[in-house]
Computed example of a mutant assay.
Amino acid sequence: MTVQDRGLLPLLAGLCPMHAVLDAEGHLVQAGPTFAKLFGARALQGMRFLDLIELRRPHQAGNMADLLASAGARLRLRLRAAPHTALKGVLLPLPGGGAVVNLSFGISVVEAVRDFDLTGADFAATDLTTEMLYLIEAKSAAMDASRKLNLRLQGARIAAEEQAFTDMLTGLRNRRALDHVLDRLMQSEQDFALLHLDLDFFKQVNDTLGHAAGDHVLQEVARRLRDEVRSDDLIARVGGDEFVILLLGMTERAPVGDLADRMIARLEKPVPYRAQHCRISGSIGITLSCAYDSPEPVRMMADADLALYAAKGRGRGCARFHESPLPRAAPAHGIA
């Protein structure tokens, strides 16, 4: 067969779509359809093969003689133009001059499919690359489905955790979240102020206007409290009309007391509900973690509760700090 034996050339296109037929000077006589696809719309016939493809192993090639010296060997080549796709190949000389080079992508087939928009029709029917592409496509689809499922599961877990720590009526944290944060603060030994707030006259709202009005008031209370604290502070609804506020890093009585007074003043502003105005107030008991040698959540909550009752006993609508009782005097001995 010579390069002039055109009757055999169409067979190569069907059997080896990545082939190139070269004449005795190394110019392209015919390019297989997949080989031609690597160069877009360029007319390849008559172009010098080594101007398009670089032979890297087993040795460099500068002319047709160098190419023929590699006949029968496993060739490592690459496109000279971007994206410089790596190729594998074998060259067989033709009687009468010239050669046939059969190429493949090897392990770079995935990138080649992407870069040159190849399909199964661009590979020989017996090429195992087609089977590998199907496996890669199936694996990609499975991994994509797995990734989406994991994202949904992760989203569901985050949503469930968020719901478990959230009071659904007000959007504030709940008692479970409060206990979690208190435990974390104990471990980190970070100082904070704890405010126990109980709404005054809230029962009258429920009794006179109904529970829907009460829910509306609680939501408005939550909004007003959020406006007064920082983003790092925590507000938790721990009962029907009871709230606990943790002010992180605040240990001075004066600024804590001022903040509590501002909260109470905000709460005393009427809450519109339909054609009515709901009027409430708030009483607050306060403890500071720095006042304890070894602060404990249970004790601080109990002390804040005592301070809250003291605030209510003084007419409500006010804030009181917990005052530690004086230590008991030791009993005198020897006195009748």
Rank of each mutant, 00 (worst) to 15 (best):
P295A: 08
M250C: 07
D167I: 02
A86E: 15
I107W: 00
Q154E: 14
R176H: 15
L133V: 10
R237E: 10
L9D: 02
R223N: 13
V21R: 03
D127T: 04
A41K: 08
P325H: 12
A265M: 06
A213I: 07
L128D: 12
A330H: 02
A20Q: 04
A71D: 01
V113L: 12
L234Q: 13
R237K: 11
R42K: 13
R114W: 11
S289Y: 02
H180L: 14
L248H: 06
R262C: 03
A332N: 07
R173L: 00
L67M: 15
V110R: 13
L128C: 05
F243I: 01
H277S: 13
I284K: 03
P17Q: 08
A65H: 14
H333Y: 10
L67C: 15
A310N: 06
G89T: 09
L8R: 10
G214K: 03
G62W: 11
D127N: 08
D5P: 01
L11S: 05
L8C: 09
P325F: 10
D191W: 00
K139H: 15
A302N: 07
C290N: 11
N150A: 15
L247D: 09
L15S: 13
Q60P: 05
S294E: 12
V238M: 06
M186H: 04
Y273D: 08
G317V: 07
D241T: 05
L326M: 14
T170Y: 13
P83Y: 00
D305K: 02
H27K: 06
M64C: 15
L259C: 10
I284C: 04
A319E: 02
P95N: 14
L50A: 10
A145P: 01
A291R: 03
L248D: 08
L194G: 06
A177C: 14
L92T: 13
L91K: 05
A99D: 10
I158F: 00
P295D: 05
H196G: 01
L185P: 01
T170A: 09
G240T: 05
L77G: 11
L182T: 01
V229I: 15
L195A: 12
Q204D: 15
D167P: 04
D23G: 07
S108T: 05
L79E: 03
A159F: 05
M186L: 06
A160N: 08
I158C: 00
D66T: 04
D303R: 01
S104I: 03
H277Y: 05
Q204K: 13
L246G: 00
G7P: 00
M263C: 14
R56N: 10
R274C: 10
C278E: 11
H216I: 01
D117I: 00
R176E: 12
V101S: 04
P58C: 13
A254M: 11
P255L: 08
G282N: 02
P33G: 11
R224F: 13
M186P: 00
Y309I: 03
P10Y: 15
E268S: 06
D207A: 04
M132N: 14
E111F: 03
S231K: 09
M47N: 08
A99I: 07
D293F: 03
L50M: 07
A213T: 08
L103C: 11
I158N: 06
A36L: 05
G249W: 09
G7E: 15
D183G: 09
L326G: 11
F49A: 13
E220P: 01
G285T: 01
T119W: 12
D183V: 00
L22V: 04
R57K: 15
L8K: 05
P270V: 04
P325T: 10
P272C: 00
L225P: 03
M300S: 02
D207G: 05
S70P: 01
